[in-house]
Design a protein around this nucleic acid. Structure first.
Length: 893
RNA sequence: GCGAUCUUAGCUCAGUUGGUAGAGUACUUGCAUGACAUGCAAGGUGUCACAGGUUCGAGUCCUGUAGAUCGCACCA
């Protein structure tokens, strides 16, 4: 017995209830051991204290689409959720909170501060996972993992120790990106390059022998204090004679050497470069090759230190001003010209990033990169879209060692202990209580934590119980698809590949599906500062999660950014309402329908069902094929749009309208047969819809007469399964209904163009030559009369065409002359205009076709099928135009 | 500077082996029609960025130009 539905779809009534039911019923759970084939996805873990943004919404919708689709296709589908501790981001959030209490983390102390962050995590950590539930994410929540969970920590320590013992993790003094406000090294990912209008200062460095000056050009005069050489091009004639001599560094009067290196561009500036190895990445390299002294002039807060002499204690910007002033007063500043250059900024604090010499931990990437490159080159891992392969390989080719230490308090502590007695470094998975070398008890753990991406890099297996040998890994590693944005290919994807191959001896995933950014309707990046952020949760509140999901999926085009507008979302909200009302219609007419015992396997005999039924089943077969194809080709928007088209334009606009007379008619057998087909078609397209729009589909599904326990775990309709029902659809019925549709549309067109009221019943005649077409029209008399609003229907000769509107309908060999007497209804000018317009269009077509077909080369070279088709089209057009001319004459007479 | 992607209707975008350009949306007109006005019906809309080339035929393939976006490197 079918149930009733409200007359308007209200998503908020439905979503929470359905989600709770799914979750409490255990439908999201995957089995570690199962006879079903595995399919697994790991969720890119969002920041634990963050909240869901549009980027997540897109990312998660794609993953949930895949998981629900595979689950319904009979896979043991496992979507592993989790959250990231997000070192810097979270620490900053909590520090901001402290600031409100006029406290700093230093005042609080490390232990208390960590406690505060845990408090914060416990308070807000559920927010994002609850928002994910709002979106419909069908994750296996029992497997929810936090990157600081004990299991993950164990994996982190194991990996660290293992790489250290192999010599692939080392500690050393190196130049790193340093954020002054955060007092930590940061990764390249956290550096944003911005174009800045600066100045190029030309400064005279006096030659030691007093014979003159060497002019250097620099954008950062304050780093002069750390100069340990000046450099020219070895072949630069201007300076060749000076190579090997010395200059006196202005202001602090240090004697430094003039060296030569091909790195210098003779054309740029003065052709002389000052070398500050401790504060510039290029200078650092030159410093290394030329064995130069490295003088650090900054402290951790990026203030000038004792090496800067009189400038000690100043901020960088301050020091720059003062240095320029002092140079001016010494008349050593030659000139200052405006100069546009890009400057690295800390993406978290906004401060200018300083290259800073410090003791850090690094991962040697050279050897890790080799198999990681090969995995992609050989196709074991595939990027979609494929163009990202090149980007990935390029980066892997220029990969540098990875700075993994951060001077933060929130994250995985580096498992290394220094011995205060013998200075030995103890690296161990379990905290030692004495130095392994000298047995001293005076050991101290390194105060640094690991880069967040270090633990994220292990995510595909650390979440599955590694280093224990678990069933989870046996079943689900490697995972199938990784869905993510291109912004973290290097920082996350590449590292997962390297670490997965090193520690699991297998790739972490087979396919990397890269999607674009969600932008605003103008194509601008959404950002707090431009105030154009659209909150997905707010959109869900207003229009429903299904509408949001469908909007994102329908506009997802192979890795391209997508522009999001609420207006478009409303369009898909309307689609949800349309589906709802179609279901309402169907259920009303299925009230007295009882599902057969075989449920969705129940199939009527072909002889029992109408041509409309055969037609809709034919269309259903088509759309199922299209959806499956597009899923396989990873063209999810095409799948979504095919479904949209079927539901709205085939099922709602035509099928429902065509069967209304049968459902409301007085032939119980016909009616029962149509009811069965209607129930079956509903059952199938609701299942087809489920991965896209899980909530509305489940809600309707539960009220359908033909159903199983739950849509979410029912079988996904598939062209190879339940073949019997789809076999009832026929191409012949397809053609027949297409012709009926054309005829109805032709009549509606005449009415529309002549502005005839839909309430006005008309009389129509149909001029048909062949018997077959005559029969088709006869069989569909009721449908045509109802949908075209006729009160008279005659099939046969043309009859008297005087004062009649005439349209020739031609379709695959069938030809119908639709004749509508207009006498008394209209002033004929409109109709004459309508016919003339059609004639003009036909004439244009005929002209083009004739020209083409009279081209000998075309006839000689073109595909014979193309020629045949064109000839047929030409003949048809000529026939149509003749008939229209005739009509026009009759009309005017 | 190197590389990638892109430029199609007012807007957002499809267009998969070359064969008369499509969809959604917006727009115009008409409409209370027993599922739905979040609806129904009908309608108009294009130098496919530009310039060449290959071909009987190019939105599609090739070359160049311009513009947009994004990477990478450099910016002393």
């Amino acid at each position: 017995m079918a149930e009733k539905l409200n007359d308007r779809y209200n998503s908020s009534d439905v979503e929470t209830r359905i989600y709770q039911w799914w979750e409490s019923s255990g439908f999201f759970k995957a089995q570690d051991q199962s006879t079903k084939p595995p399919f697994s996805i790991i969720l890119p873990p969002p920041n634990v204290t963050g909240s869901l943004h549009m980027g997540h919404a897109l990312d998660h919708t794609i993953q949930d689409l895949l998981i629900r689709w595979k689950r319904m296709c009979g896979f043991n589908a496992m979507w592993l959720p989790g959250t990231d501790h997000a070192g810097i981001a979270t620490q900053m959030v909590v520090e901001r909170e402290l600031k409100k209490e006029n406290l700093s983390r230093h005042q609080l102390g490390r232990e208390k501060f960590e406690e505060r962050i845990w408090q914060w995590k416990n308070q807000y950590g559920d927010r994002i996972t609850n928002q994910m539930r709002r979106l419909g994410d069908s994750c296996d929540w029992d497997r929810n993992t936090f990157t600081l969970d004990e299991g993950v920590s164990k994996a982190v320590r194991k990996v660290f120790v293992s790489l250290f013992k192999k010599g692939w993790i080392y500690r050393g003094q190196r130049l790193v990106n340093w954020s002054g406000p955060l007092e930590t090294a940061i990764s390249d990912l956290e550096v944003e390059h911005k174009q800045i209008k600066g100045a190029l200062y030309h400064i005279n460095y006096p030659l030691e022998d007093g014979s003159g000056f060497l002019t250097v050009a620099t954008t950062r005069p304050e780093t002069l204090l750390g100069d340990t050489a000046v450099c020219v091009h070895p072949e630069d004639e201007r300076y060749q004679h000076l190579i090997g001599k010395n200059v006196i560094l202005p202001l602090i009067k240090r004697k430094i050497k003039i060296i030569a290196d091909v790195y210098v561009d003779k054309e740029f500036g003065s052709g002389v470069v000052k070398i500050t190895p401790a504060h510039d990445f290029n200078d650092y390299k030159i410093g290394k090759t030329h064995h130069l002294e490295m003088i650090n002039i900054l402290n951790k807060k990026t203030e000038l230190n004792e090496n800067a002499g009189p400038y000690k204690g100043m901020k960088v910007a301050e020091a720059r001003k003062k240095v320029i002033e002092d140079l001016k007063s010494l008349q050593l500043l030659v000139k200052e010209e405006p100069h546009l250059h890009s400057v690295g900024h800390c993406s978290r604090s906004g401060a200018v990033v300083e290259p800073f010499l410090s003791e850090q931990w690094f991962v040697k990437t050279e050897m890790l990169a080799v198999p990681a490159k090969r995995a992609v080159e050989s196709g074991t891992i595939r990027f979609e879209p494929e163009s990202w392969t090149k980007v990935y390989l390029h980066w892997m080719n220029i990969i540098e060692d990875w700075c993994i230490s951060r001077q933060l308090w929130w994250g995985h502590r580096i498992p290394a202990w220094f011995c205060e007695d013998c200075e030995h470094l103890n690296v161990a998975e379990i905290a030692p209580d004495h130095c392994e070398k000298c047995q001293s008890k005076k050991i101290k753990q390194d105060s640094d934590v690991l880069d967040t991406w270090f633990s994220s890099g292990l995510w595909p297996f650390s979440t599955m119980g590694w280093p224990e040998d678990t069933e989870t890994q046996k079943t689900f590693y490697p995972t199938n698809t990784l869905v993510t944005g291109h912004d973290i290919i290097f920082f996350w994807v590449a590292r997962m590949i390297m670490l997965g191959l090193e520690f699991k001896k297998d790739v972490p995933f087979r396919t990397v599906y890269i999607h674009g950014l969600v932008r605003d309707s103008q194509g601008q990046k959404m950002s707090k500062s431009s105030g154009n952020v659209i909150d997905p949760v707010e959109m869900i509140d207003k229009h429903g999660a299904d509408a949001l999901r469908f909007t994102l999926l329908a506009h997802l085009h192979s890795g391209k950014d997508l522009k999001f507008s609420e207006q478009r979302l409303e369009g898909y909200r309307n689609f949800m309402n349309k589906i709802w009302n179609a279901a309402r219609f169907a259920l009303t007419h299925l009230e007295d329908f009882t599902a057969p015992k075989e449920g969705s396997k129940a199939v009527p005999a072909r002889s029992e069902i109408s041509v409309f039924d055969q037609w809709i089943l034919f269309k259903l077969d088509e759309v199922e094929k299209k959806i499956e194809e597009n899923f396989e080709k990873e063209r999810y928007s095409d799948a979504a749009n095919a479904l949209y088209h079927f539901i709205w334009y085939e099922f709602c606009d035509w099928y429902i309208e065509l069967i209304k007379p049968i459902l409301g008619g007085n032939n119980p057998q016909e009616r029962a047969a149509t009811q069965l087909v209607l129930a079956q078609v509903m059952n199938r397209f609701i299942r087809l819809l489920h991965p896209f729009c899980p909530f509305i589909s489940e809600e309707i599904y539960q009220k359908l007469p033909i159903k199983n326990k739950a849509c979410i775990i029912d079988q996904y309709p598939n062209v190879r399964i339940d073949k019997d029902l789809l076999a009832l659809g026929s191409a012949q019925a397809g053609l027949e209904i297409d012709l009926v549709k054309e005829v109805i549309t032709a009549i509606r067109n005449i009415r529309g163009e002549n502005r005839l009221s839909p309430a006005l019943k008309m009389k129509a005649r149909f001029g048909v030559a062949d018997e077959m077409t005559q029969k088709i029209l006869g069989n569909n008399k009721t449908a045509i009369m109802t949908l075209a609003r006729l009160d008279e229907f005659t099939v046969g000769d043309d009859g008297n065409l005087s004062k009649c509107a005439v349209t020739q309908v031609v379709l695959k060999g069938a030809s119908v002359k639709v004749i509508l007497p207009l006498e008394g209804h209209v002033n004929f000018d409109e109709e004459i205009k309508r016919i003339q317009k059609t004639i003009e269009k036909l004439q244009k077509d005929i002209g083009q076709l004739t020209q083409k077909l009279s081209n000998e080369k075309f006839v000689a070279n073109a595909d014979p099928d193309v020629i045949t088709a064109d000839r047929a089209l030409l003949a048809q057009s000529k026939q149509q135009i003749a008939s229209l001319h005739e009509a026009l004459i009759r009309f005017e007479s």
